[in-house]
Simulated assay, not measured.
Amino acid sequence: MLQILTEPLGFEFMRNAIAIGLLIGVLCPVVGSYLIVQRMALFGDVIAHCVLPGLSISFFFGIDILIGAFGAGILGASLIAWIRSQSRVKADAAMALTFSSFFALGVTLITVLKNKLDLDSFLFGDILGVTGADIQRTLIISLIILLVVRLTYKEMLFYTFDKTGAQAIGLPINLIYFAFMSAITLTIIVSMKAVGVILVISMLVGPALSAYLLVKELHHMMILGAVIGVFSSVTGIYLSYYHNLPSGPAIVLVSSTLFILSLLFSPSQGILTRSRNLFLRPFRSPSN
């Protein structure tokens, strides 16, 4: 058993993969918890696809992809907010339009600019190809986001559940929205290398959803979601090593499996446990 755990650690690419897997395993569920409780889970997917034009432009001009991707992601989020504020268009329609438009623009720019952006790696990730620089950047961004989440937890909690009340007491809701969009965009950017754009939404909401079924408090949801995210990442990487599976999909499948188990067996909300409780309830004595 010990050999199974230690053998992959003899390879540098596996150590790098596990390191970045641990970081995104913590970061994604913490940020994703806010998406879930605000009923904005698909918003993460929209932003994930909005970064493609920024990536293409960054590659063409030879600048850090973080700059271009972040700018494109924030532009997409701002466009959605602007459409909603200036028209009767609902959030889902605004997101659908922005999603498709930015993704089409990104694919077009890749063709027109003829850059060497690896579209497959962008879509599906390449966690086994991460470098020390990738890990360092992910670590710095993760620490910054987690620190901001910790310092602004009460304000974000109020904003999440009562935007009108937050505005009434003087909280800068526009600044909070921008900071929240920035955190989502940065989380997606640093996670793309590991699982890709198509699968990053699963890491954002999968572990957090599992925790949502098991606990009731938001901070407990974040902590448990981070534990589930770390377990999913490490287990997926080991499965990919021993069974020759693509690493990103393996991580996501582990996360999805844990969600199914939570959905079935959650003590308070599980489908099977709820059915069992309903079945046993008539047979309990009044004294119980």
Rank of each mutant, 00 (worst) to 15 (best):
Q3D: 14
L5G: 03
T6M: 07
E7L: 05
L9R: 04
E12N: 08
F13E: 03
M14K: 09
A17I: 06
A17P: 07
I18A: 11
I20G: 01
G25T: 08
C28H: 13
G32L: 12
S33I: 05
L35T: 12
Q38F: 00
M40D: 06
M40W: 11
A41S: 15
L42A: 04
F43S: 06
F43E: 05
G44L: 11
D45C: 08
A48I: 05
C50E: 08
C50G: 09
C50H: 07
V51H: 04
L52M: 11
P53R: 08
G54Y: 07
L55N: 04
S56G: 05
S58G: 12
F61E: 07
I65R: 10
I67Q: 08
G68D: 07
F70K: 04
F70G: 04
F70S: 13
F70Y: 13
G71K: 09
L75N: 08
A77S: 15
I80L: 09
R84V: 05
Q86Y: 10
S87I: 06
K90T: 12
K90R: 15
K90L: 10
D92L: 11
A93W: 02
S100C: 13
S100R: 09
S101Y: 12
F103A: 09
V107Y: 07
T108N: 08
L113K: 04
K114L: 01
L119W: 00
L119H: 02
D120Q: 11
D120K: 10
S121A: 14
S121F: 03
F122L: 03
F122G: 02
F124S: 01
G125P: 01
I127Y: 00
L128E: 02
G132T: 06
D134G: 00
Q136P: 00
R137L: 03
T138L: 00
I141C: 00
L146G: 02
L147N: 00
Y153D: 01
Y153F: 15
K154V: 12
K154L: 12
E155T: 10
D162F: 04
A166C: 05
I169M: 09
G170W: 01
G170Y: 02
G170P: 07
L171E: 02
L171D: 00
P172M: 02
I173P: 00
L175A: 04
I176M: 01
Y177H: 10
F178V: 02
M181C: 15
S182D: 03
L186V: 06
I189K: 14
S191I: 13
K193G: 11
G196T: 13
I198F: 11
L199C: 07
L199Y: 14
G206Q: 12
L209H: 08
S210H: 06
L213K: 15
L213E: 13
L214Y: 06
V215C: 10
K216A: 12
H219E: 14
I223T: 15
I228W: 09
V230Q: 06
S232G: 08
S232C: 06
V234G: 09
G236N: 09
I237F: 04
I237E: 07
L239K: 10
H243W: 15
L245D: 09
P246S: 07
P249C: 05
A250H: 04
I251V: 13
V252C: 08
T257M: 13
T257L: 14
L258A: 02
S262F: 00
P267M: 03
S268K: 13
Q269M: 03
I271C: 00
L272N: 01
L272H: 01
R276F: 11
L280C: 06
S287W: 14
S287Y: 12
N288D: 12
